[in-house]
């Protein structure tokens, strides 16, 4: 596969959330605000990219039986790095406590493990890096779209700044967790209505 395809496929046609249905857990929980979504998207992109790269370098040396544990250790290390970096800039850039749990959960995020299993173990390091970054970005794309709607209608703000006119009554349903699921369901609906190849029989 060409490098360009490797990069573009995960953004739309093979989007990790709407097509492969990987890594949905965190996608739903962190999308109440745009800021949380962007922090999460960047963290996942870094971890998938670097995780793919490192495991692709190691791919010939890992015995098949213990590969899951090796993958978990590498990914956990990367996540600890991301978590520590976020903690160190907490003074200037505060994030809420709930988000930090989901940062830890990147370890078991299916996108990370899924791309390592499906791509990095069979490809050279550089394409693996590109594949990991692209999947992180594809994931981030959906996160940002969902968070945009939820923050706009749920709190009337974007990035914490008031956008809706002063008399706007916030829609509390949008803030509730189940609404994120319904919203992603609708995104999948729209996506598949455009791209008929993806429809299930």
């Amino acid at each position: 596969m060409k490098l360009k395809d490797t990069f573009l496929t995960p953004l739309l046609k093979g989007n990790p959330i709407t097509v492969l249905v990987l890594g949905v857990c965190s996608a739903l929980a962190v999308t109440v605000t745009l800021k949380g979504a962007i922090v999460m998207a960047l963290s996942v992109t870094v971890v998938t990219g670097l995780g793919n790269f490192v495991l692709s370098l190691l791919r010939k040396g890992i015995p098949n039986r213990v590969r899951i544990i090796v993958q978990l250790v590498v990914v956990a290390m990367l996540v600890i790095l991301v978590d520590q970096i976020l903690k160190s800039i907490e003074a200037t850039f505060p994030i809420d406590k709930q988000l930090s749990v989901y940062i830890g959960l990147i370890i078991t995020n299916c996108i990370v493990m899924g791309r390592i299993e499906a791509f990095a173990l069979g490809n050279k390091p550089f394409p693996s890096l590109v594949d990991g970054l692209a999947n992180g970005l594809g994931y981030g794309l959906i996160l940002v779209v969902v968070a945009f709607f939820r923050e706009l209608f749920g709190s009337g703000t974007l990035f914490g700044l008031q956008v809706m006119p002063a008399g706007y009554i916030t829609n509390n349903l949008v803030i509730l967790p189940p609404f994120a699921l319904i919203l992603i369901g609708c995104i999948i609906w729209a996506h598949r209505a455009f791209d008929k190849e993806l429809q299930e029989k």
């Binding site: 369901g185 609708c186 999948i188 609906w189 299930e200």
Partner: peptide, 13 residues
Amino acid sequence: PLKGIGISFITVG
């Protein structure tokens, strides 16, 4: 277009 995974999401919601 909603069949399969799409409707499952909405059901879970």
